[in-house]
Write a protein that binds this DNA or RNA. Structure first.
Length: 951
RNA sequence: GCGGGAGUUGCCAAGCCUGGUCAAAGGCGCAGGGCUUAGGACCCUGUCUCUUAGGGGUUCGUGGGUUCAAAUCCCACCUCCCGCACCA
């Protein structure tokens, strides 16, 4: 409809630019430092990103109006592998990604061509995202913008990582990763075809002696060593004779290769075919028994070592292979004598669980795919519910789940076993086409998040922090609890090199944890006052930690002092916003790194976590094609309607559903409000009538309600209170004023609307300015103060209107049920002795007594109210009346001794009834002489609940 | 498995911490009316059920319990969603 959203938005953005209100420098006011997790520029931002930033912006704008000096800055996170992967794919001409860039993100072809360079991708989306943020009206101090590959930022990261190392929080060790042998790089989800995360697990190799050689077999169930009856070999496989770290092994070729990547020293000595091994004897470790190597077709060379130990009692594959094998042996052969050895007792199973599972599923041979299912079932049941039997010697009687670790340790100690890491979801293919393996990276650098002192400090910080919403707090403690060493460096990509080991680059989740401090520097960097030259450890130590002095630093002293001052002013971070997906990583690391580096006074104060955004109730995803780029949405609907639609749809932690209907609803609402604003004129308020006092009281409560909601970041509630709930009160006010035929209330409406628009301003900043202007108010609404609760709430006015409303409701109700057309309405107010009784009952209820009998006894004991015993129904109903009211109202009623119901109704209700039904109203007090009461209704009257007769 | 979150009246979604204002906000949808040449938008009314007097009945995943009083507190169970690492 007739609103030029983008015109209005541009107009006010220009005004904001002129007043430079978002550029925060230290001053005498109290500060708020509000930050959001900076974006990773590998795609345009969509509605979902918009949510977090919008919440933070509302937060910032609110505090600015409250009179705080608010710093709300933004940077861009260039470091990370996804952009690298994208560049590689663009270079390779991967049509999937190029089509996506073209059709979903609408990147011009000329730009796509440059995307073979990762930095071009980052630069492109950086500008795209920034434009969207500006168009959304975010009140960001752009003088402090930076990217994480800026030279000064890199110096900052070097200082951070060095400081951690000096505190012994960075350690070196080896670590397994998914690895592409061709690229010579670790691979993660976005480096693989089909975006699969390489998943690996640790197998135990049980070493069987075979002459001079060792035949290792891989297992996840080392406890089954006690139940081994034979080995399985695939006669068609060529096995390698190899020397592994000085021991002679026989394994498949694939296994030998895997061992190489696991940093084992492997030399190749020769080959031996599987067929040659069939029928040979090997010695079982510890048991020292000789068992046979038998042939089986299910044995695969690429799994484990290519040889399998057979535990037919507990492994369905082995059981079935044994059955198959025996079929081909002559009756009476001693091979027929091989019997499963049962070593685990599990409830619901007999001696040979594997046999039961195989038979239950109707498995016919060892190549039956249902064997996987059987294996899973038995494994799970035995692991969690199985008890080891007597023949497991020192482990007998233990639960499998508990004994497993000690068995592993024992095997390793006795040198009966070794370890093999293997992909569990192989084959995993790198985007380059090569098949991935598990590699042990030696000399990997770790942040030692396992350090208990560190954890303790982080928990201490967390305890003092405000975490919004509260529900998420436990998750932080939990994450800190299970965190252990975490790799903090990688070998490729953009970023900062480790100062002491140039082969490594600081990993991107580690170079983004204390950068809020960098916003202070960024201003000086961007204005040319600071460059990477000569930035020493002493400089950072001084400006961020206050260590030493500015004397020894080779930079102009006044600049250094100014930076130190500005840092001291703005730090710590007052609020950090982010999506909930960052809780187990970034947000927790943010706390950990702050407590490690900064003194306690500079530890962060608050974390605000929000849920994600759904599109028409569904998750946004590329494959569904329902990703809405933010800038597109702004063009289609306007920035403010989007901001409001996102906020109004759900509270903080819930997923917000974004849909067209709600955006349209919001739009219409705003249009109507804008229209309203241009009609209202500021007028001096005259004598206040009952409804005026009431609506002003309601306004006061609304202001305090909205303010406290925002403090708790319950923005949905705040917006709703202002925009929707209050509307009901306003309607009542208008109804009352119109019924009286007044034309002097424009001034009140103007005042009310002015306050409402001010409170709308953080949420819908552009249109609020437009409304403010239409109202004829001077200046910018964003620079006006946040409305304060100025007058006392007029309790009597509230009681009065409540009474009028409830009488009108009752009248409407009666008419609805009886379907009569009213000709006359007669109202009877309660007698004064009922008021006394009412007060006595109220007093009782407020002191916690709700028992009818006890209250009755009390009333009868008092001569003033003793008469009530004739009307027990009154007491019963009055108790119910009182209990169905908010405690606040009860209190005011208790305090208001004199309340002239009859007067109020005669003064105020007649016009209402006339307006609604066009009839006259007669009012009597129950005890009036000459009362007209043909139906005996009057005696049913109660205080605040007059009786009604409609004719 | 470990940890977290959630199940509310046609749908979405508040309320639960701090029990009584709760037959339960608001939005959407639906029905009726107004406005309009018509549609859209907007405004009003209704939207668990019974009821010709402002009242009653049955509801907040299921089953118990605490209480004068439970959507709200406690216990058990069922169902759904999310995270679990080197990846932003």
């Amino acid at each position: 409809m007739g609103i030029d959203w983008s015109g209005i938005e541009a107009k006010w953005r220009k005004k904001w630019d002129e007043v430079k209100d978002f550029e925060a420098n230290p001053n005498e006011k109290e500060k708020k430092f509000i930050t959001v997790a900076y974006p990773y520029p590998n795609s345009p931002q969509h509605i979902g990103h918009g949510r977090t930033y919008t919440l933070a912006d509302v937060h910032a704008r609110y505090y600015r109006m409250k009179g705080y000096n608010v710093l709300f800055p933004m940077g861009f996170h260039y470091t990370g592998t996804p952009i690298l992967g994208m560049a590689k794919r663009v270079e390779a001409g991967d049509s999937e990604i190029i089509d996506g860039l073209k059709n979903i993100y609408h990147v011009p072809e000329n730009d796509i061509k440059t995307f073979v360079e990762p930095i071009k991708i980052a630069d492109y989306f950086h500008e795209e995202i920034k434009s969207g943020m500006i168009e959304m009206g975010y009140s960001i101090d752009w003088r402090r913008e930076f990217t994480t590959i800026d030279p000064v930022y890199q110096k900052f990261i070097e200082w951070q990582i060095t400081t951690l190392k000096e505190k012994n929080l960075i350690i070196q060790g080896s670590h397994p990763v998914g690895w592409c042998p061709k690229d010579q790089n670790p691979v993660s989800q976005h480096d693989t075809m089909g975006d699969v995360e390489p998943d690996f697990t640790e197998y135990i190799l049980i070493k069987f002696k075979f002459d001079d050689y060792i035949i290792p077999t891989a297992t996840l169930r080392p406890e089954t060593l006690f139940g081994v009856t034979n080995l399985w070999v695939n006669p068609g496989t060529k096995y390698k004779k190899v020397t592994v770290d000085g021991e002679k092994w026989i394994v498949s070729a694939e296994c030998a290769r895997k061992l190489e990547f696991l940093e084992r020293k492997v030399t190749y000595d020769g080959e031996i075919s599987g067929a040659e091994l069939v029928g040979k004897l090997v010695e079982v470790p510890h048991r020292k028994e000789k068992i046979l190597i038998l042939e089986a077709s299910f044995v695969e060379s690429h799994t484990g070592t290519g040889l399998v130990m057979s535990v037919p009692a507990h492994a369905p594959f082995d059981y079935q292979a044994l059955v198959d094998f025996k079929k081909n042996q002559p009756l009476g052969s001693e091979l027929q004598l091989i019997r499963p050895i049962s070593i685990i007792q599990t409830e619901g199973y007999g001696e040979i669980p594997a046999k039961e599972a195989v038979e239950k599923l109707g498995i016919s041979d060892q190549n039956d795919p249902k064997l996987e299912q059987a294996t899973e079932e038995i494994y799970g049941k035995e692991f969690y519910g199985g008890i080891l039997k007597q023949n497991t010697e020192q482990f007998a009687g233990k639960k499998v789940s508990e004994a497993k670790e000690s068995i592993k340790e024992w095997l390793a100690k006795e040198k009966y076993s070794d370890v093999l890491l293997e992909l569990t979801n192989s084959p995993v293919k790198c985007r380059c086409g090569a098949e991935c393996v598990v590699k042990i990276l030696t000399n990997q650098w770790f942040l030692n998040y396992g350090d208990n002192n560190w954890k303790e400090k982080a928990n201490r910080c967390l305890d003092k922090m405000s975490i919004l919403p509260q529900e998420i707090r436990g998750e932080f403690n939990y994450v800190i609890g299970w965190l252990h060493e975490r790799a903090c460096a990688r070998q490729h990509g953009m970023g900062t090199k480790l100062p002491w080991d140039q082969a490594w680059i600081v990993e991107s989740l580690s170079d983004s944890v204390i950068y809020m401090a960098y916003y202070i520097l960024a201003k000086f960097v961007n204005s040319g006052k600071l460059s990477a030259d000569g930035l020493s450890k002493e400089f950072f130590d001084y400006v961020f930690l206050g260590k030493g002095s500015s004397d020894g630093i080779k930079l102009p002293k006044d600049i250094v002092e100014e930076i130190r001052k500005e840092f001291s002013y703005f730090y710590p971070v007052d609020s950090r916003h982010s999506g909930r997906d960052l809780v187990p990583n970034h947000l927790t690391f943010f706390v950990l790194n702050h407590v490690a580096i900064f003194p306690e006074k500079d530890w962060p104060r608050q974390i605000v976590v929000n849920g994600s955004v759904l599109m028409d109730g569904k998750k946004m995803s590329k494959s569904m094609g329902n990703i809405i780029p933010l800038r597109q949405a702004i063009r289609d609907h306007g920035a403010d309607p989007i901001r409001l639609a996102i906020i109004i749809s759900a509270e903080l932690l819930q997923d917000a559903d974004f849909n067209l209907e709600s955006v349209n609803g919001i739009k219409n609402k705003l249009v109507a409000l804008l229209d309203e604003c241009s009609k209202l004129k500021a007028e001096k308020l005259g004598n206040l009538q009952a409804e005026d006092k009431w609506i002003l009281s309601k306004l006061q409560s609304m202001i305090s309600g909205v303010s406290s909601s925002i403090e708790k970041m319950r923005l949905r509630e705040a917006l709703h209170g202002n925009l929707f709930s209050f509307e009901a009160d306003l309607n009542w006010f208008l109804k009352r004023a119109r019924a009286k035929g007044r034309n002097d209330y424009s001034g009140i409406l103007h005042e009310i609307t002015t306050k409402r628009i001010a409170m709308l301003s953080p949420f819908a900043p552009h249109i609020a300015e437009e409304m403010w202007e239409k109202l004829g108010n001077s200046g910018l609404v964003s620079q006006s103060g946040w409305p304060t609760v100025s007058a006392k709430i007029d309790a009597k006015a509230v009681l009065s209107e409540d009474l009028l409303k409830s009488v009108m409701d009752d009248v409407a109700n009666i008419i609805k049920i009886t379907k009569i057309t009213p000709k006359k309405i007669i109202i009877y107010t309660a007698d004064s002795f009922k008021s006394k009784a009412y007060h006595a009952i109220l007093d009782k209820v407020m002191s916690g007594e709700t028992n009818m009998g006890a209250i009755m006894k009390d009333l009868i004991a008092n001569p003033e109210t003793a008469d009530i015993k004739k009307n027990p129904d009154f007491v019963q109903k009055t108790i119910k009346d009182i209990l169905s009211e908010p405690v606040e109202i009860r209190k005011t009623k208790l305090e208001t001794v004199e309340f002239d119901e009859k007067g109020l109704i005669s003064d105020e209700l007649i016009s209402l009834a006339k307006a609604d039904y066009g009839v006259d109203v007669q009012i009597y007090s129950e005890s009036d002489s000459g009362i007209y009461d043909p139906k005996g209704k009057a005696r049913h009257s109660r205080p605040f609940k007059p009786a009604i007769l409609i004719e």
